[in-house]
Nucleic acid binder design. Sequence first.
DNA 1: TCTCTCATGAGAGTGAACTCTCATGACGAT
DNA 2: ATCGTCATGAGAGTTCACTCTCATGAGAGA
Lengths: 197, 197
Amino acid sequence: MEAETVTGRANQKARTRKAIVDACRDLARSGAEVTMPRVAKAALVSEATAYRYFPDLTSLLQEALVAVWPGPEEALAPVAASADPAERVAFATGYLLRHVHAHQGAVRAMISTTITAPARSGARPGMRFALIDHALAPFADPSPGALARLKHSLALACGAEAFFVLTDLCGLSPDDAIATAVDTAATLTRAAFASET
Amino acid sequence: MEAETVTGRANQKARTRKAIVDACRDLARSGAEVTMPRVAKAALVSEATAYRYFPDLTSLLQEALVAVWPGPEEALAPVAASADPAERVAFATGYLLRHVHAHQGAVRAMISTTITAPARSGARPGMRFALIDHALAPFADPSPGALARLKHSLALACGAEAFFVLTDLCGLSPDDAIATAVDTAATLTRAAFASET
DNA sequence: TCTCTCATGAGAGTGAACTCTCATGACGAT
DNA sequence: ATCGTCATGAGAGTTCACTCTCATGAGAGA
Protein backbone atom coordinates (compact mmCIF):
# COMPACT_ATOMS: atom_id res chain seq x y z
CA MET A 1 0.00 0.00 0.00
CA GLU A 2 1.01 3.61 -0.34
CA ALA A 3 2.64 5.40 2.56
CA GLU A 4 -0.49 7.40 3.18
CA THR A 5 -2.57 4.28 3.70
CA VAL A 6 -0.30 2.73 6.28
CA THR A 7 -2.92 2.83 8.97
CA GLY A 8 -6.07 2.32 6.98
CA ARG A 9 -8.20 1.95 10.05
CA ALA A 10 -7.03 5.27 11.44
CA ASN A 11 -7.54 6.97 8.11
CA GLN A 12 -11.02 5.61 7.88
CA LYS A 13 -11.87 7.02 11.27
CA ALA A 14 -10.34 10.34 10.40
CA ARG A 15 -12.39 10.48 7.24
CA THR A 16 -15.59 9.68 9.07
CA ARG A 17 -14.90 12.30 11.69
CA LYS A 18 -14.12 14.88 9.05
CA ALA A 19 -17.29 14.07 7.15
CA ILE A 20 -19.33 14.66 10.27
CA VAL A 21 -17.63 17.91 11.20
CA ASP A 22 -17.83 19.16 7.62
CA ALA A 23 -21.51 18.39 7.38
CA CYS A 24 -22.11 20.13 10.67
CA ARG A 25 -20.13 23.16 9.56
CA ASP A 26 -22.04 23.38 6.31
CA LEU A 27 -25.35 23.15 8.06
CA ALA A 28 -24.25 25.77 10.58
CA ARG A 29 -23.10 28.11 7.83
CA SER A 30 -26.37 27.70 5.99
CA GLY A 31 -28.13 29.13 9.01
CA ALA A 32 -30.41 26.10 9.13
CA GLU A 33 -31.39 24.36 12.29
CA VAL A 34 -28.62 22.01 13.31
CA THR A 35 -29.75 18.65 14.70
CA MET A 36 -27.97 15.34 15.02
CA PRO A 37 -30.25 13.54 12.55
CA ARG A 38 -29.69 16.23 9.93
CA VAL A 39 -25.95 16.27 10.38
CA ALA A 40 -25.72 12.49 10.25
CA LYS A 41 -27.83 12.34 7.12
CA ALA A 42 -25.77 15.04 5.43
CA ALA A 43 -22.56 13.28 6.41
CA LEU A 44 -23.88 9.97 5.09
CA VAL A 45 -23.36 8.21 8.38
CA SER A 46 -25.81 6.78 10.84
CA GLU A 47 -26.85 8.80 13.85
CA ALA A 48 -25.29 6.14 16.05
CA THR A 49 -21.93 6.71 14.42
CA ALA A 50 -22.17 10.45 14.90
CA TYR A 51 -22.75 9.89 18.60
CA ARG A 52 -19.77 7.56 18.69
CA TYR A 53 -17.51 10.40 17.61
CA PHE A 54 -19.17 13.13 19.62
CA PRO A 55 -20.89 12.48 22.94
CA ASP A 56 -23.45 15.19 22.26
CA LEU A 57 -24.49 17.88 19.82
CA THR A 58 -22.60 20.49 21.78
CA SER A 59 -19.20 18.86 21.33
CA LEU A 60 -19.84 18.49 17.64
CA LEU A 61 -20.90 22.11 17.26
CA GLN A 62 -17.93 23.25 19.25
CA GLU A 63 -15.48 21.41 17.04
CA ALA A 64 -17.22 22.54 13.88
CA LEU A 65 -17.27 26.18 14.93
CA VAL A 66 -13.77 26.29 16.30
CA ALA A 67 -12.50 24.79 13.07
CA VAL A 68 -13.94 27.72 11.14
CA TRP A 69 -12.90 30.52 13.43
CA PRO A 70 -9.37 31.84 13.24
CA GLY A 71 -7.36 32.25 16.40
CA PRO A 72 -7.43 35.48 18.40
CA GLU A 73 -4.13 36.78 16.98
CA GLU A 74 -5.39 36.47 13.45
CA ALA A 75 -8.82 37.84 14.31
CA LEU A 76 -7.39 40.89 16.03
CA ALA A 77 -4.66 41.53 13.49
CA PRO A 78 -6.37 44.70 12.21
CA VAL A 79 -5.98 46.33 15.61
CA ALA A 80 -2.67 44.74 16.49
CA ALA A 81 -1.01 48.13 16.33
CA SER A 82 -3.59 49.88 18.49
CA ALA A 83 -2.68 50.85 22.02
CA ASP A 84 -6.23 51.84 22.89
CA PRO A 85 -7.82 49.10 24.98
CA ALA A 86 -11.34 50.26 24.16
CA GLU A 87 -10.65 50.16 20.46
CA ARG A 88 -9.19 46.68 20.69
CA VAL A 89 -12.05 45.37 22.79
CA ALA A 90 -14.62 46.96 20.53
CA PHE A 91 -13.11 45.31 17.51
CA ALA A 92 -13.01 41.94 19.23
CA THR A 93 -16.65 42.25 20.21
CA GLY A 94 -17.72 43.15 16.70
CA TYR A 95 -15.70 40.29 15.31
CA LEU A 96 -17.20 37.74 17.70
CA LEU A 97 -20.75 38.88 17.21
CA ARG A 98 -20.54 38.88 13.45
CA HIS A 99 -19.53 35.25 13.64
CA VAL A 100 -22.34 34.48 16.02
CA HIS A 101 -24.74 36.12 13.61
CA ALA A 102 -23.39 34.08 10.72
CA HIS A 103 -23.79 30.84 12.64
CA GLN A 104 -26.96 31.63 14.52
CA GLY A 105 -28.58 28.23 14.20
CA ALA A 106 -25.60 26.37 15.55
CA VAL A 107 -24.95 28.76 18.40
CA ARG A 108 -28.58 28.81 19.42
CA ALA A 109 -28.63 25.02 19.50
CA MET A 110 -25.48 25.01 21.62
CA ILE A 111 -26.87 27.45 24.16
CA SER A 112 -30.17 25.63 24.26
CA THR A 113 -28.60 22.35 25.25
CA THR A 114 -25.95 23.72 27.62
CA ILE A 115 -28.22 26.10 29.49
CA THR A 116 -30.16 23.21 30.96
CA ALA A 117 -27.01 21.27 31.82
CA PRO A 118 -24.76 23.84 33.49
CA ALA A 119 -22.31 21.14 34.48
CA ARG A 120 -21.45 20.49 30.85
CA SER A 121 -21.03 24.14 29.94
CA GLY A 122 -17.31 23.53 29.95
CA ALA A 123 -17.91 22.08 26.52
CA ARG A 124 -18.61 25.52 25.14
CA PRO A 125 -15.75 27.09 23.29
CA GLY A 126 -14.10 29.92 25.16
CA MET A 127 -14.01 32.15 22.12
CA ARG A 128 -14.91 35.26 24.03
CA PHE A 129 -12.30 34.69 26.70
CA ALA A 130 -9.51 34.12 24.22
CA LEU A 131 -10.50 37.26 22.34
CA ILE A 132 -10.87 39.39 25.44
CA ASP A 133 -7.59 38.17 26.88
CA HIS A 134 -5.78 38.87 23.67
CA ALA A 135 -7.35 42.28 23.28
CA LEU A 136 -6.30 43.27 26.78
CA ALA A 137 -2.98 41.45 26.86
CA PRO A 138 -0.80 44.52 26.27
CA PHE A 139 -2.22 46.43 29.22
CA ALA A 140 -1.35 46.44 32.88
CA ASP A 141 -3.89 46.29 35.63
CA PRO A 142 -5.09 49.87 36.22
CA SER A 143 -5.79 48.97 39.82
CA PRO A 144 -5.58 45.64 41.66
CA GLY A 145 -8.26 43.30 40.40
CA ALA A 146 -9.72 45.81 37.97
CA LEU A 147 -8.64 43.87 34.93
CA ALA A 148 -10.15 40.65 36.20
CA ARG A 149 -13.39 42.44 36.92
CA LEU A 150 -13.38 44.08 33.52
CA LYS A 151 -12.99 40.73 31.83
CA HIS A 152 -16.01 39.38 33.63
CA SER A 153 -18.02 42.43 32.68
CA LEU A 154 -16.96 42.11 29.09
CA ALA A 155 -18.10 38.50 29.05
CA LEU A 156 -21.61 39.94 29.29
CA ALA A 157 -21.32 42.22 26.28
CA CYS A 158 -18.95 40.17 24.18
CA GLY A 159 -20.81 36.92 23.75
CA ALA A 160 -23.54 35.15 21.87
CA GLU A 161 -26.05 35.74 24.66
CA ALA A 162 -25.64 39.48 24.24
CA PHE A 163 -26.44 39.22 20.56
CA PHE A 164 -29.57 37.18 21.17
CA VAL A 165 -30.79 39.40 23.99
CA LEU A 166 -30.50 42.44 21.76
CA THR A 167 -32.12 40.89 18.72
CA ASP A 168 -34.74 38.61 20.28
CA LEU A 169 -35.76 40.60 23.34
CA CYS A 170 -34.87 44.18 22.49
CA GLY A 171 -35.96 43.72 18.90
CA LEU A 172 -32.86 45.24 17.38
CA SER A 173 -31.66 44.38 13.91
CA PRO A 174 -28.50 42.28 13.77
CA ASP A 175 -26.43 45.31 12.80
CA ASP A 176 -27.88 47.46 15.56
CA ALA A 177 -27.38 44.65 18.03
CA ILE A 178 -23.72 44.34 17.14
CA ALA A 179 -23.26 48.09 17.30
CA THR A 180 -24.87 48.22 20.72
CA ALA A 181 -22.75 45.39 22.10
CA VAL A 182 -19.60 46.94 20.68
CA ASP A 183 -20.51 50.25 22.23
CA THR A 184 -21.22 48.64 25.57
CA ALA A 185 -17.94 46.76 25.58
CA ALA A 186 -16.03 49.92 24.71
CA THR A 187 -17.77 51.87 27.45
CA LEU A 188 -16.95 49.26 30.04
CA THR A 189 -13.32 49.18 28.96
CA ARG A 190 -12.97 52.94 29.04
CA ALA A 191 -14.52 53.07 32.48
CA ALA A 192 -12.14 50.46 33.81
CA PHE A 193 -9.08 52.24 32.52
CA ALA A 194 -10.25 55.70 33.50
CA SER A 195 -11.15 55.33 37.15
CA GLU A 196 -8.50 54.66 39.76
CA THR A 197 -11.10 54.48 42.50
CA MET B 1 -76.09 27.87 44.58
CA GLU B 2 -73.95 30.41 46.37
CA ALA B 3 -73.11 33.65 44.70
CA GLU B 4 -69.54 32.54 44.18
CA THR B 5 -70.67 29.57 42.12
CA VAL B 6 -72.77 31.54 39.67
CA THR B 7 -70.68 30.51 36.72
CA GLY B 8 -69.61 27.03 37.68
CA ARG B 9 -67.99 26.38 34.35
CA ALA B 10 -65.85 29.47 34.59
CA ASN B 11 -64.91 28.72 38.16
CA GLN B 12 -63.91 25.24 37.24
CA LYS B 13 -61.62 26.55 34.54
CA ALA B 14 -60.16 29.11 36.88
CA ARG B 15 -59.45 26.41 39.43
CA THR B 16 -57.76 24.19 36.87
CA ARG B 17 -55.65 27.05 35.62
CA LYS B 18 -54.67 27.98 39.13
CA ALA B 19 -53.74 24.41 39.97
CA ILE B 20 -51.41 24.29 36.99
CA VAL B 21 -49.78 27.63 37.69
CA ASP B 22 -49.40 26.79 41.37
CA ALA B 23 -47.81 23.45 40.62
CA CYS B 24 -45.45 25.13 38.19
CA ARG B 25 -44.56 27.80 40.71
CA ASP B 26 -43.86 25.23 43.39
CA LEU B 27 -41.67 23.22 41.09
CA ALA B 28 -39.84 26.37 40.02
CA ARG B 29 -39.29 27.44 43.60
CA SER B 30 -37.94 24.04 44.49
CA GLY B 31 -35.19 24.57 41.96
CA ALA B 32 -36.07 21.28 40.30
CA GLU B 33 -36.22 20.78 36.59
CA VAL B 34 -39.52 22.06 35.29
CA THR B 35 -41.14 19.99 32.55
CA MET B 36 -44.71 19.76 31.34
CA PRO B 37 -45.20 16.16 32.45
CA ARG B 38 -43.98 16.99 35.95
CA VAL B 39 -46.15 20.05 36.27
CA ALA B 40 -49.21 18.23 34.98
CA LYS B 41 -48.65 15.38 37.37
CA ALA B 42 -48.16 17.72 40.31
CA ALA B 43 -51.29 19.65 39.34
CA LEU B 44 -53.28 16.43 39.04
CA VAL B 45 -54.31 17.17 35.48
CA SER B 46 -53.42 15.45 32.26
CA GLU B 47 -50.64 16.81 30.10
CA ALA B 48 -53.21 17.48 27.39
CA THR B 49 -55.13 19.76 29.71
CA ALA B 50 -52.02 21.66 30.65
CA TYR B 51 -51.37 22.32 26.99
CA ARG B 52 -54.95 23.46 26.58
CA TYR B 53 -54.35 26.26 29.05
CA PHE B 54 -50.84 27.13 27.95
CA PRO B 55 -49.66 26.69 24.37
CA ASP B 56 -46.16 25.86 25.56
CA LEU B 57 -43.96 25.53 28.60
CA THR B 58 -42.70 29.07 28.17
CA SER B 59 -46.12 30.69 28.59
CA LEU B 60 -46.73 28.62 31.67
CA LEU B 61 -43.38 29.52 33.19
CA GLN B 62 -43.94 33.17 32.39
CA GLU B 63 -47.28 33.27 34.14
CA ALA B 64 -45.96 31.33 37.10
CA LEU B 65 -42.93 33.56 37.52
CA VAL B 66 -44.75 36.83 36.98
CA ALA B 67 -47.29 35.80 39.57
CA VAL B 68 -44.54 35.50 42.15
CA TRP B 69 -42.63 38.64 41.33
CA PRO B 70 -43.86 41.93 42.64
CA GLY B 71 -44.17 44.85 40.28
CA PRO B 72 -41.30 47.25 39.68
CA GLU B 73 -42.60 49.90 42.06
CA GLU B 74 -42.74 47.47 44.92
CA ALA B 75 -39.41 45.89 44.03
CA LEU B 76 -37.64 49.23 43.86
CA ALA B 77 -39.31 50.70 46.92
CA PRO B 78 -36.08 50.59 48.96
CA VAL B 79 -34.44 53.01 46.54
CA ALA B 80 -37.55 55.01 45.77
CA ALA B 81 -36.02 58.02 47.48
CA SER B 82 -32.70 57.78 45.72
CA ALA B 83 -31.85 60.29 43.03
CA ASP B 84 -28.74 58.44 41.94
CA PRO B 85 -29.44 56.55 38.72
CA ALA B 86 -26.53 54.18 39.24
CA GLU B 87 -27.73 53.26 42.69
CA ARG B 88 -31.24 52.63 41.47
CA VAL B 89 -30.09 50.55 38.52
CA ALA B 90 -27.70 48.58 40.70
CA PHE B 91 -30.47 47.74 43.11
CA ALA B 92 -32.77 46.67 40.29
CA THR B 93 -30.10 44.42 38.84
CA GLY B 94 -29.41 42.76 42.17
CA TYR B 95 -33.10 42.28 42.73
CA LEU B 96 -33.66 40.70 39.34
CA LEU B 97 -30.69 38.39 39.55
CA ARG B 98 -31.54 37.14 43.00
CA HIS B 99 -34.90 36.10 41.66
CA VAL B 100 -33.30 34.41 38.68
CA HIS B 101 -31.01 32.54 41.04
CA ALA B 102 -33.95 31.44 43.17
CA HIS B 103 -35.81 30.13 40.13
CA GLN B 104 -32.89 28.83 38.13
CA GLY B 105 -34.55 25.68 36.85
CA ALA B 106 -37.56 27.49 35.47
CA VAL B 107 -35.59 30.31 33.91
CA ARG B 108 -33.11 27.91 32.33
CA ALA B 109 -35.97 25.94 30.82
CA MET B 110 -37.51 29.11 29.48
CA ILE B 111 -34.31 30.29 27.83
CA SER B 112 -33.64 26.85 26.44
CA THR B 113 -36.94 26.71 24.60
CA THR B 114 -37.08 30.34 23.46
CA ILE B 115 -33.52 30.54 22.21
CA THR B 116 -34.26 28.09 19.43
CA ALA B 117 -37.52 29.79 18.52
CA PRO B 118 -36.61 33.48 18.39
CA ALA B 119 -40.00 34.34 16.93
CA ARG B 120 -41.71 33.29 20.13
CA SER B 121 -39.36 35.18 22.41
CA GLY B 122 -42.11 37.70 22.87
CA ALA B 123 -43.49 35.20 25.32
CA ARG B 124 -40.69 35.97 27.74
CA PRO B 125 -41.62 38.28 30.55
CA GLY B 126 -40.14 41.72 30.21
CA MET B 127 -39.07 41.84 33.83
CA ARG B 128 -35.79 43.49 33.09
CA PHE B 129 -37.33 46.17 30.94
CA ALA B 130 -39.95 47.09 33.49
CA LEU B 131 -37.30 47.30 36.19
CA ILE B 132 -34.87 49.29 34.10
CA ASP B 133 -37.56 51.68 32.94
CA HIS B 134 -38.75 52.24 36.46
CA ALA B 135 -35.25 52.70 37.80
CA LEU B 136 -34.50 55.32 35.18
CA ALA B 137 -37.93 56.92 35.05
CA PRO B 138 -37.04 59.99 37.13
CA PHE B 139 -34.15 61.01 34.92
CA ALA B 140 -34.02 63.03 31.75
CA ASP B 141 -32.05 62.06 28.72
CA PRO B 142 -28.46 63.28 29.31
CA SER B 143 -28.05 63.58 25.56
CA PRO B 144 -30.38 62.66 22.70
CA GLY B 145 -30.72 58.90 22.47
CA ALA B 146 -28.37 58.23 25.34
CA LEU B 147 -31.09 56.88 27.58
CA ALA B 148 -32.37 54.49 24.93
CA ARG B 149 -28.86 53.23 24.34
CA LEU B 150 -28.25 52.85 28.05
CA LYS B 151 -31.36 50.75 28.39
CA HIS B 152 -30.18 48.41 25.68
CA SER B 153 -26.78 48.12 27.32
CA LEU B 154 -28.35 47.42 30.66
CA ALA B 155 -30.40 44.62 29.14
CA LEU B 156 -27.10 42.79 28.80
CA ALA B 157 -26.10 43.09 32.44
CA CYS B 158 -29.52 43.04 34.02
CA GLY B 159 -30.91 39.74 32.86
CA ALA B 160 -30.94 36.03 33.39
CA GLU B 161 -28.41 35.46 30.62
CA ALA B 162 -25.89 37.59 32.48
CA PHE B 163 -26.29 35.45 35.57
CA PHE B 164 -25.80 32.23 33.65
CA VAL B 165 -22.81 33.52 31.70
CA LEU B 166 -21.09 34.51 34.91
CA THR B 167 -21.84 31.32 36.80
CA ASP B 168 -21.67 28.70 34.04
CA LEU B 169 -18.95 30.12 31.80
CA CYS B 170 -16.93 32.35 34.10
CA GLY B 171 -17.25 29.95 36.98
CA LEU B 172 -18.32 32.56 39.50
CA SER B 173 -20.36 31.73 42.57
CA PRO B 174 -23.96 32.99 42.50
CA ASP B 175 -23.09 35.79 44.89
CA ASP B 176 -20.04 36.86 42.92
CA ALA B 177 -22.03 36.68 39.71
CA ILE B 178 -24.69 38.98 41.10
CA ALA B 179 -22.09 41.37 42.44
CA THR B 180 -20.36 41.49 39.08
CA ALA B 181 -23.56 42.12 37.16
CA VAL B 182 -24.60 44.82 39.63
CA ASP B 183 -21.23 46.44 39.27
CA THR B 184 -21.39 46.30 35.50
CA ALA B 185 -24.86 47.83 35.40
CA ALA B 186 -23.79 50.64 37.73
CA THR B 187 -20.71 51.35 35.65
CA LEU B 188 -22.73 51.57 32.47
CA THR B 189 -25.24 53.89 34.09
CA ARG B 190 -22.57 56.17 35.49
CA ALA B 191 -20.85 56.34 32.13
CA ALA B 192 -24.10 57.27 30.39
CA PHE B 193 -24.87 60.06 32.81
CA ALA B 194 -21.32 61.37 32.99
CA SER B 195 -20.36 61.86 29.35
CA GLU B 196 -22.02 64.48 27.22
CA THR B 197 -19.96 63.46 24.23
C1' DT C 1 -6.18 -17.07 1.96
C1' DC C 2 -8.36 -17.24 6.30
C1' DT C 3 -9.61 -15.28 10.43
C1' DC C 4 -10.33 -11.88 13.85
C1' DT C 5 -11.15 -7.28 15.05
C1' DC C 6 -13.53 -3.29 14.83
C1' DA C 7 -16.06 0.57 12.45
C1' DT C 8 -20.56 0.98 11.16
C1' DG C 9 -25.61 0.48 10.44
C1' DA C 10 -30.09 -0.62 11.86
C1' DG C 11 -33.32 -0.35 15.14
C1' DA C 12 -35.45 -0.28 19.60
C1' DG C 13 -36.03 2.42 23.83
C1' DT C 14 -36.40 6.65 27.04
C1' DG C 15 -38.01 11.20 28.08
C1' DA C 16 -39.44 15.63 26.71
C1' DA C 17 -42.05 19.11 23.75
C1' DC C 18 -45.88 19.34 21.38
C1' DT C 19 -50.23 18.06 18.39
C1' DC C 20 -54.43 15.64 17.54
C1' DT C 21 -58.29 12.67 18.15
C1' DC C 22 -61.79 10.35 20.53
C1' DA C 23 -64.41 8.97 24.47
C1' DT C 24 -66.34 10.24 28.95
C1' DG C 25 -68.77 12.46 32.17
C1' DA C 26 -70.03 16.48 34.81
C1' DC C 27 -72.40 20.71 34.71
C1' DG C 28 -75.73 24.10 33.03
C1' DA C 29 -79.90 25.04 30.55
C1' DT C 30 -84.49 23.84 29.49
C1' DA D 1 -85.44 15.11 34.76
C1' DT D 2 -83.34 15.27 30.35
C1' DC D 3 -80.34 16.93 26.93
C1' DG D 4 -76.46 19.08 25.03
C1' DT D 5 -72.23 21.40 25.73
C1' DC D 6 -67.78 21.43 27.09
C1' DA D 7 -63.79 20.42 30.27
C1' DT D 8 -61.02 16.66 30.73
C1' DG D 9 -58.51 12.23 30.24
C1' DA D 10 -56.36 8.77 27.67
C1' DG D 11 -53.53 7.65 24.26
C1' DA D 12 -51.30 7.68 19.79
C1' DG D 13 -48.13 10.24 16.85
C1' DT D 14 -43.98 13.30 15.59
C1' DT D 15 -39.29 15.13 16.24
C1' DC D 16 -35.21 15.46 18.70
C1' DA D 17 -31.44 14.28 22.23
C1' DC D 18 -29.45 10.44 23.65
C1' DT D 19 -28.35 5.30 24.96
C1' DC D 20 -27.83 0.49 24.02
C1' DT D 21 -27.70 -3.78 21.57
C1' DC D 22 -26.94 -6.74 17.84
C1' DA D 23 -25.68 -7.97 13.24
C1' DT D 24 -22.71 -7.07 9.24
C1' DG D 25 -18.95 -6.42 6.59
C1' DA D 26 -14.51 -4.50 5.43
C1' DG D 27 -9.87 -4.13 6.49
C1' DA D 28 -5.59 -5.94 9.04
C1' DG D 29 -2.65 -9.61 10.46
C1' DA D 30 -1.11 -14.34 10.14
